[in-house]
Design a protein around this nucleic acid. Structure first.
Length: 573
DNA sequence: GCCGTTTTCGGCCCGACTGTTTTCAGTCG
């Protein structure tokens, strides 16, 4: 599910971008952008809906519904094709540079014929940009900085896109005759925050049909290398995918080898060498005789080296091998451990689904408790009021009667203002079951101010969870600067949890900071921050980050039974 | 382009910030 929705959403987003570049009406552009969110978050597959069904999607009316019908018939939207002919793709790409929007992109195109990020960098170097109307030296500086930021992400993609792609490849190859096993390995199996390429491993005695199917996949745009053991392709989205085929007997050793990380494997092989052994992707061998010892499962390989199986999310040579040798590997938190979700939105603010729909989805997840935490009034664009919030609380309490097995918590996502204050006074905050508090503005405060801001928020007796703490958007906005150890001390001292926001472009708190915070005794909440029914599935990505942060169930407050959680939420009040 | 107890027209999210400006446009959340 969702692929057609994603493609339509991409096309509508492109339409919105191209319209804004060509100076289209702002309201029209925003209407398309609203439709993008609605379509991508819509639970039904838009390729199966007729005009009537499409128009029932919020923010999709007659005109956009017909464009989706156009997509169903032609695989594209003709108006998008027409605009593409008018505006080179590179011009749209310019707007990915932070601080450079559609208006400036159009000026650059019309007056300097700039059609790519590289050409823009050259034009700045040659001093041709600063004299354009609306541009200046500072603008040039900001653009160059933006380009550098863009390049830092270095062609890596977000983990959700990589996961979907990998699952598609694995599913297609799994159906090929002779394929005994197939799985993805590499950084995606280790659940890194972003993915540079995808490694797929298959077991078969007859690789040829696998390779043939692989290079014929519709997502393949270019075959980089092709052999009978390994084939590499580039997808139409520019991501490299490697397929490695091994005999079934080598599966465990190969999976271990191709999962990495490189540093982890180097360390493991050193252990093998010291034991008079040799480890490769084909198995663990006696060094002298070359006799095979084990190779069929990862567990066998690790065990023969005197180690327990090490979860892939820990394999970074960051102390996991030492811990394994000492028998001190953590029992990592996993999806089944979660009893609740403490951060979600409805269409009362910027969510797409109704309260009823979100609660129903939480119930399907089998949660024991679920918090609705819509935005508080200081995020002005959401137009929250005391009255609306109290009315929602009544609705939540009423809805509770239909869910005897799940406790509904009424909460809010507060805004931490530059001084560390939040939207409401104590009297009003007291009425909530749980309060998340997040930074949504003034991202560029210096480290000292930002640190004070977080510490003050933690000291508020009603703030339970700091939402998406670094406020980063991967590839788009850097994390805020703070003295994190100071912040972590404040969290531990005040009983304030840090969120692990599961959105693929947030994954915030990042894994390294999770590990650091854990050392201070901080607790965490692994939350969907869902704004739509489909966002509940993002939990898997946040779970990967939590594991990379070495978290156990005891570290995560929403794995706790409700009574223990409630005690924590009281913050000693 | 969407929407509706302002219902087929006339509204539509509001404010901060930045850098370019001589009063404001563009970008962002």
């Amino acid at each position: 599910m969702g692929r057609a929705n994603d493609e339509v959403a991409d096309l509508l987003q492109e339409l919105a971008d191209l319209l804004s570049i060509t100076g289209g009406e702002g309201y029209k552009v925003r209407a398309y952008e609203k439709a993008v969110r609605a379509v991508s978050g819509h639970p039904e597959d838009v390729s199966t809906l007729d005009l009537k069904g499409l128009k029932q999607i919020p923010n999709v009316g007659e005109a956009i519904a017909k464009k989706i019908l156009d997509y169903q018939q032609t695989g594209t939207i003709r108006q998008v094709e027409a605009l593409r002919a008018q505006i080179p793709a590179g011009v749209r790409a310019l707007t990915a540079i932070p601080t450079l929007g559609p208006k400036k992109a159009m000026v650059l195109y019309e007056s300097l014929q700039v059609t790519s990020v590289a050409e823009l960098a050259t034009a700045i170097d040659e001093g041709r940009v600063r004299d354009l109307k609306g541009f200046g030296e500072k603008t040039e500086e900001n653009i160059l900085h933006g380009i550098a930021l863009l390049e830092q992400s270095g062609g890596r993609v977000l983990v959700d896109l990589a996961t979907e792609l990998a699952e598609e490849v694995v599913s297609a190859l799994g159906d090929v005759a002779g394929c005994v096993r197939c799985a993805h390995a590499g950084s995606l199996r280790r659940m890194r925050e972003t993915i540079g390429d995808i490694d797929v491993l298959a077991a078969s005695d007859d690789p040829a049909p696998l390779m043939e199917t692989f290079v014929s996949l519709p997502i393949v745009s270019e075959v980089i290398a092709r052999g009978d053991k390994k084939t590499s392709v580039r997808t139409i989205k520019g991501l490299q995918v490697d397929l490695r085929v091994v005999p079934l007997a080598s599966w465990g050793a190969a999976l271990q080898y191709f999962t990495g990380s490189k540093q982890h494997n180097v360390h493991i092989r050193e252990i093998a060498v010291r034991a008079g052994l040799k480890l490769s992707e084909y198995g663990l061998f006696e060094a002298e005789s070359g006799d095979l010892i084990v190779s069929s499962t990862e567990e066998d390989v690790y065990e023969r080296l005197g180690l327990p199986w090490i979860p892939p999310t820990l394999r970074e040579d960051g102390g996991e091998i030492e811990a394994a040798l000492a028998g001190e590997l953590p029992r990592l938190v996993q999806a089944d451990d979660l009893r609740g979700d403490l951060h979600s939105h409805t269409d009362l603010t910027d969510g797409l689904a109704t309260l009823e729909e979100m609660v129903a989805t939480a119930a399907e997840r089998g949660l024991e408790y679920y918090a609705i935490t819509d935005h508080a009034p200081n995020l002005y664009m959401q137009r929250m009021t005391d009255e609306k919030m109290l009315a929602q609380r009544d609705a939540v309490r009423a809805l509770q009667e239909r869910y005897p097995d799940m406790v509904l918590l009424h909460g809010t996502e507060l805004n931490i203002d530059p001084d560390g204050g939040v939207d409401w006074p104590a009297e009003f905050l007291e009425g909530f079951d749980v309060c998340v508090a997040s930074v949504h503005s003034h991202f560029t405060q210096d480290s000292a101010e930002m640190t004070r801001r977080f510490v003050t928020a933690c000291e508020n007796p009603y703030v339970n969870v700091i939402g998406h703490p670094t406020a980063r958007l991967i590839g788009r906005r850097p994390p805020v600067e703070a003295d994190w150890d100071e912040v972590f001390r404040a969290c531990a001292r005040t009983g304030t949890a840090l969120e692990i926001d599961c959105f693929p472009d947030r994954l915030d708190l990042p894994a390294e900071l999770i590990r650091r915070a854990k050392r201070h005794g901080v607790r965490f909440a692994i939350d969907s921050d869902a704004h739509a029914v489909v966002h509940h599935r993002n939990i898997r990505y946040g779970m990967g980050i939590a594991q990379r942060g070495w978290l156990t169930p005891d570290d995560v407050i929403n794995t706790w039974p409700l009574e223990r959680l409630r005690e924590f939420l009281r913050k000693g009040r």
